[in-house]
Design a protein around this nucleic acid. Sequence first.
RNA 1: GCGGACGUAGCCGAAUUGGCAUAGGCGCUAGAUUUAGGAUCUAGUCCCGAUGAGGGGUGGGAGUUCAAGUCUCCCCGUCCGCACCA
Length: 845
Amino acid sequence: MKNTYPFKKIENKWQKKWEQEPLFKERSVSEKRKKYYLLEMFPYPSGRIHMGHVRNYSIGDVVARHKVMNRFNLLHPMGWDAFGLPAENAALKEKVHPAIWTDKNISYMRGQLKKMGFAYDWSREVSTASPDYYRWNQWIFLKLYERGLAYQKMAAVNWCPQCTTVLANEQVEGGNCWRCGTAVESKEIKQWFFKITSYAEALLNDLSGLNGWPEKVKIMQANWIGRSAGVEICFKIAGEDETIPVFTTRQDTIFGATYLVLSAGHSLSAKLVKGTKIEKKALEFINQVRREKLNKTAQTEVEKRGIFTGRYAINPVNQEKIPIWIANYIVMEYGTGAVMAVPAHDQRDFEFALKYKLPIRLVIQNGNNSLALEAMPEAYEGEGNLVNSEKFSGMDSSAAKNKIALWMEEKKIGKRKINYRLKDWGISRQRYWGTPIPIIYCEKCGTMPAAEKDLPVALPKKIEFAYKKGVSPLVADEKFYFTPCPKCGQKARREIDTMDTFVDSSWYFLRFTDSKAQKSLFSPGEANYWMPVDQYIGGVEHAIMHLLYARFMHKFLSDIGMVETREPFSNLLTQGMVIKDGAKMSKSKGNVVDPDDIIDKYGADTARLFILFAAPPEQDLEWSDQGIKGAFRFLNRVWRLVNFPCRREVPEDIAKNLEGVLKRKLHQTIKKVTDDIERFHFNTAISAIMELVNLIFSFSFERPKQGSVLPESPIMAESLRTVVLLLFPFVPHIAAEMWEILGEKETVSRQFWPEFKSELAREEKVTLIVQVNGKVRDKLEIKAGLSEEEIKAKALTQERVRKWLANQEIVRTVIVRGKLVNLVVKPGQQPNNDQEIKDTITKKQ
RNA sequence: GCGGACGUAGCCGAAUUGGCAUAGGCGCUAGAUUUAGGAUCUAGUCCCGAUGAGGGGUGGGAGUUCAAGUCUCCCCGUCCGCACCA
């Protein structure tokens, strides 16, 4: 395009200036201004920023600049979630060390963020891969370990026997290894866990206090935690001392339990059939179910199948002998992995019982006693009144639940229990590029935590990746692997697994409050000043994992006295994806737009403006090349506002409107833009500025080529200055340059946000619409402040209204101040102007 | 299956509390200007009707209300999360 504004020159110039003189200087706790901690989710240094980053950080930057102009003491940091698998994969593929690969990416991406003009306090930059940072991961681990919240247990992992390696869930495709296609097996290995479940209750309860979070995210977290209250009941195995505990939330249906089911993974499943005739068949079934479980591609429900063990359990409430089955529909990971089956009142049990001809017994009757076993096409899962339940018959479900639970506790056959869907957080990764777990195994002393003074347990720089498949590469480094026991000094082995990178990101927001701290992970004073994060912005894909881990970690750090707040993020904005041609941008789809190309062709301001204007932040945003051009066109148009000469003399007719019309619009725009930024409606804020710019151009009175001549007057000058100030948060470079062109000495970022004056925004005349029976018939220009009588009288004199009143009687008049008059009529006599106002409803706006 | 969000013009979207549906942008049409262009300016742009009066219109259907894009119920469709959770 020709004749475009010199965005490259301008953006370069101001980025250099801002490098010398950042928007935020180092802020301190002692500052008197109100604090505001603004945070966008920090990126993984994958190599280049993508449009999702551009969107995320453009949103944040608007808020940042707006807050600075409103004189907040702002914390707006940026850093790098720098550990992770891609670096290690790149190391294998490109023969480059993960640290070098990561550092190179960080410095390129940092440059890209600067090219976008994002205003961060770079003095607080952190990289989670730096020993200064990850040593505190290790410190946190030790504190968790001290309190029994970090522990080791055997856990199933995905294992590829061909590659002899552990696979992440994401690397299992249809039950097969993503690399070699071999069927993945489940393998039990010892792993470290964080006991997030002991915070389940707090994580759930405190959701209700998060008023600044999207309802959707809170619901997702609540579902993920999955609390359910019930009873754990012990069923004796007939002829043995051993019992099988089952968990149920429907203890009111226990008299209807007609069989007991174990999951295939249950330890008793194999044990119960041992030495019996069906042992071989049963074991075959168990293995088959395990394989199916692993192969999780089948998102649809598989057919229920099971096998009778030949053994029986005793229902503790009535001593009834019920058969024990093994079935594929029981989840091992939830509850106890065993379930009492009540086919009449659970659809899954119902289907299973029908298939295997197991007895079904009705024990809950619905409200109108209309349930009959023979006529039931499906289980009745609702509540009702108990029947066939001995002394509990006749009670309603909720009363019976209580009574039965108490009675069981008294008789010691069961106890009330809360179960969670949430499981402990497995943090062991058999990888190099992560935080080493600070644990030492000594043959004599056992599992020993590293001493605090020995932190960081540094990741060795030299590493052989392909030493031994399936084990962390750290095993190859003898200097690392073998270390003296911190207790007895004997030769001992280090833990060679590293931590899940979600550990790194679960507390980085706290590190930012004091990122240079050497003696502790951060000083409580700084953290308590800045926390909580006032506004957190990021993708909704982190609704569960990251946000749950961060809340957990924050609560733990709060419990050990590091920070006072109980929740880390008081407001959360989840921004939508950037999509193109209806799909998320991805290399495989070939629909990626590279931010660098857009910056090069149109400039950072255009990229920012488009992405903020095209859709509100929470919604997905469809990339549009035309839309980018539109944004660019607008900036060129704005540029012309200050780059053509103004005339001294203003024609009289124009001057008259300038004072009234322009001034009012100016103040209305200030109000709208301010409100819209505060509620994150950037698209409408920008459209309001566009309207103001359009109005300013409508006052131009000579049109030489390439532009317009604007009248010179105080209100015009004020309008131009205000447009620039309002634009600054969105498009800072062009705004800074225009501010200078307008002859202002002090830089635009030091300016106050324009002040809205309601008396200047008020319209002299109000346009009321006049409705008859709810249909718009006319518009009425009236002076503000007329009485209802006057308004109605005026409405009745309008020719266009009278037409609709012929042969009608006015039965009601509704007046909404400043908005409308609605005359409700029905056929009758013709009204006259003296007719009394009857049944008038007045509403204030 | 359960939970949630959403459906407005040719396209992106606006309508904050129930009060003129479609602001702003894109695209399109016509004209002006021009170094003939992916520039700029002016006018127009939901549908029917004749450029009028008027009528219709926010996925479909019903309801509440003086008044419904907005509230209630039913249906259709799209997207997201979880998924045999006892």
